[in-house]
């Protein structure tokens, strides 16, 4: 996946056939890696208000993920936004907000896959076991990172 052009509010990418397949597969793997509990506070003891806020957060994040998945699936499936190129490949046109949505979703898949792999600390030299059980998690983790990097570079642009 490569950035073709960047105009104010719009990014255009070129995907090879393999990029396109890999992106679709990564997105489809997302439901296999649901995120673990995400506390709203580490010091909620005795705070009724924070306990209620935790329930609100859980519901908001679940709804957010559902709407992100639907939004991104609609984008990828829309021939006006993701158009086949001749002789091969695809042209993906995203607004800045849609790029942010895809970035969020890819990172959610990446972090979910990392949790499924046992949350290894790569910086401390920990590595997940490479076996049949972990294979899809490793694949989703690495692929989502690749797409995330391209999107991030495109979004940061000259500011970076």
């Amino acid at each position: 996946m490569k950035l073709l052009s960047r105009d104010p509010g719009q990014l255009v990418f070129r995907l090879t056939k393999r990029d396109h397949e890999a992106l679709l597969t990564t997105l489809r793997l997302g439901p296999l890696f649901p995120r673990q509990g995400r506390p709203i506070s580490r010091d909620a003891a005795g705070q009724e208000k924070l306990r209620a806020a935790q329930e609100d957060l859980d519901a908001a994040l679940a709804e957010h993920r559902r709407s992100r998945v639907a939004e991104v699936e609609a984008l990828i499936g829309d021939p006006a936004r993701c158009a086949p190129l001749k002789p091969s490949g695809w042209k993906l046109t995203l607004s800045t907000a849609e790029s942010e949505a895809l970035l969020q979703l890819l990172n959610e898949i990446r972090v979910g896959a990392w949790e499924k792999l046992g949350a290894p600390d790569f910086g401390a030299g920990e590595r997940p076991k490479i076996d049949e059980e972990n294979l899809l998690g490793l694949w989703a983790f690495q692929l989502s990172e690749v797409f995330q990097g391209v999107l991030l570079d495109a979004l940061v642009g000259d500011d970076g």
């Binding site: 995120r35 995400r38 506390p39 709203i40 506070s41 580490r42 010091d43 705070q47 924070l50 806020a53 609100d56 957060l57 908001a60 994040l61 957010h64 969020q104 990172n107 959610e108 990446r110 972090v111």
Partner: peptide, 19 residues
């Protein structure tokens, strides 16, 4: 604070609000 934690967690960052 709750709003910001929601926004940060939508990006999967480990953000919390503490009294």
């Amino acid at each position: 604070a709750e709003f910001y934690v929601h926004e940060l967690q939508k990006y999967s960052l480990q953000a919390t609000m503490e009294p």
